[in-house]
C-alpha cells in the first residue's frame, strides 16, 4: 500500500458516508412508495356528499383522466392545499373528485361552503374502508388515474406548487 493511500482511504470513506447522510436529509421518511402505482384503482361504490341517493364509483370515470383527492375537514394540511385545488378546478379541465375520509357530512360541507368547493363530486368514505383499499395513511393524498382506470401517480401529503407544475401537470398532459 502506498503511504498516501493510508490517509486518503479514511477520507474517501468519510466522504461516502457524508454523501449518504446528505441524501438521507432530503428524503422524507413519511413518504412510503405505494404498491398501487401502475395498478388498477380499487373499485368501490360510495354515496355522494349532499346527494345521498346518488353514488360514485371509479367505473363512472372510465375513459377520463381524473384526480382523486382524499381529504377531511379535520385535516389541517388539507387546508394548505385547498387553494391549489381551487386553481386546478378553475383552469384545467381535469375532473377532480374528492373523497371525504372519516368525516361527518355537516363539518365537511361547512368547510366547502366557507373555502369553496373544488370538487366535481365528493364521495363519502365515513369509516375509512375504501381508504384502506387505497393505502391511505396520511390525508391529504391525491391519486392520478388514467383513462383505463390505472393509478399513475400518488401524492402523499398536500400538493405543492412545485409538485403540481413539475409532476402532476406534465403527467396529465402526457396521459390525455
Amino acid at each position: 500500500m502506498r503511504p498516501y493511500l493510508k490517509y486518503l482511504l479514511p477520507l474517501a470513506i468519510f466522504m461516502v458516508l457524508v454523501g449518504f447522510f446528505v441524501v438521507g436529509l432530503k428524503l422524507d421518511p413519511r413518504v412510503v412508495p405505494s404498491p398501487l402505482i401502475n395498478k388498477p384503482a380499487p373499485a368501490f361504490q360510495l354515496p355522494q356528499m349532499g346527494e345521498a341517493s346518488k353514488s360514485f364509483s371509479p367505473e363512472d370515470m372510465r375513459g377520463k383522466v381524473w384526480l382523486l383527492n382524499v381529504w377531511a375537514s379535520w385535516c389541517t394540511a388539507c387546508r394548505d392545499e385547498h387553494p391549489l385545488l381551487m386553481d386546478i378546478s378553475r383552469q384545467a379541465d381535469i375532473p377532480l373528485v374528492g373523497m371525504d375520509y372519516k368525516d361527518t357530512d355537516a363539518e365537511a360541507s361547512a368547510v366547502l361552503q366557507q373555502a369553496g368547493n373544488p370538487y366535481r363530486m365528493v364521495a363519502v368514505d365515513r369509516d375509512g374502508r375504501v381508504g384502506i383499499d387505497y393505502g391511505v395513511y396520511g390525508v391529504p393524498e391525491t391519486y392520478v388515474i388514467d383513462k383505463q382506470g390505472i393509478i399513475r401517480y400518488k401524492q402523499i401529503g398536500p400538493i405543492t406548487e412545485e409538485v403540481l407544475n413539475e409532476k402532476i401537470m406534465p403527467l396529465l398532459k402526457g396521459l390525455q
Binding site: V32, P33, P35, L36, Y134, G135
Partner: peptide, 8 residues
C-alpha cells in the same frame, strides 16, 4: 396489507 401499503 402489503398489497395496499407496500413492504414497509
Amino acid at each position: 396489507l402489503v398489497a395496499r401499503y407496500g413492504n414497509f
